[in-house]
Amino acid sequence: MLHTLTVAAGHRAVTIRSDTRTVTDWAERYFGSSWTATPGTDGTGPLVTATDDRRLSRYAADTPDPAGLTDEAVFARERIRYTRHPDGVVTARTLTAPVLHYRYTPAARRLDIAASSPLAPTSASDRPTRLATAVTRFTRELMRAQLIADGWVLLHASATVLADGTALLALGDSGAGKTTTALTLAADGCALLANDCCFARVNTAGELDLLPWPSAAAIGLGLLEALAWTSTAGAHLGDGESPHPTQHQQVTEALIAGRVSPMRTQRGRELKAHVWPEQLSRWFRLTQATSAVAAAVLLPRVDPSAGAVPRISTERATEITPSVFVTSDGAERYPDLFGLTGGSGSGHPEARAAVIAHLNALPRQAVDLGHDHAANTAVLRSLASHFAAGR
């Protein structure tokens, strides 16, 4: 029996078909808080097929061993070998077990994913299988390609929806404070549209439309504690709920034990809690939005010094530059292995130019944040009220 799910966003759709219900169930759970996920229907967009037994895959014989594949990339921290054939077909396989095999046929807009052997049932029914995780990731990439073709671009930005229904964007490099800004406002009553990235497009009325980019939130332990979420996360994990697969075991152990001191790797990278989109709602009772129109832009910066006082900054420049766009090249976590965007992973030049111009025409404000959550909340709440009132 085949199980079917259609995922839709921005008037585009991707259909998932699988011989195991755990795949479509997880995709419905993963996308359902951000995009529309409808079981049992076939959309008109690209098709992702998934089987947990390579022997059942019609394309298994066409996916050679790694030695027969010409290129290699790291996609979501996983090494994948792949080849683009003269007819446009791309075959690929992972280099870690259990091996996943891929074949993308552009003429049919079809991606087939097969596990190397039947996946053993897991005792953690809440955790996606390796196959289910791959399906959600590449379904998202197929949606990205369609939205880019329709003139959307993907921004490094968080977004929260204000009381008047418009959105406040927070832009900046990794570590600037986008997630802190979004989750602080969401915990204060705003709806969360995006914690790290979102789609943007200028509409015919001259407004900037926004759509979510479904992704897990990486939350520092200090922020998690400031939001009063540590005990909730620890209770769920302590009761046996599975952690996100990219969450470090030390973080899981710390949350269960109620330890909140920040931890870092030997190379200095902060270890964070990784929370799936649906857990943001189920664990922390956040309201999540599926679309909005941008009202204003914040440019946050977290001051690491002890005792730093959050404040509106008038010294920092507020011009928005092309660095705000998410690309799909080798520098990103999700390179375009299958050539889905034809080299336009950051959006088409005209769309990028229109979005940059609009962002620079919106009200913009730089804000410095500290480690006093109540003070951060007060400053961000004041800015949100100001921008909502100015509409």
Rank of each mutant, 00 (worst) to 15 (best):
A13S: 15
R17K: 13
V23Q: 00
W26P: 06
Y30N: 03
T41Q: 12
R54D: 12
R54V: 12
A60W: 05
A61D: 13
P64L: 06
A76C: 15
R77I: 10
E78S: 15
D87W: 12
T91K: 06
V99P: 02
L100W: 01
Y102T: 06
R110H: 15
R110L: 15
R110Q: 15
L111R: 03
S116A: 14
S125T: 14
D126V: 06
R127N: 13
P128R: 07
R140F: 09
R144H: 12
R144F: 09
A145F: 01
A149W: 07
W152D: 04
G165C: 13
A170T: 05
L185G: 01
L185S: 03
L185M: 09
A191W: 05
A194V: 08
C198V: 05
C198W: 02
R201M: 10
E207V: 01
E207R: 01
P214H: 08
S215Q: 12
A217G: 05
L223Q: 01
L224W: 04
T230W: 08
G234T: 07
S242T: 06
T252H: 14
A254R: 04
I256N: 02
V260G: 02
E270W: 08
S281K: 12
S281Q: 13
A295K: 04
V297E: 00
R301M: 07
A306D: 10
I312V: 15
T314G: 14
R316K: 09
V324C: 06
F325T: 02
T327L: 12
E332C: 10
E332R: 09
D336N: 05
V355G: 00
L362W: 00
R364P: 01
Q365A: 11
G370Y: 04
H373Y: 15
H373F: 14
V379R: 11
L380E: 07
L383A: 03
G390T: 11
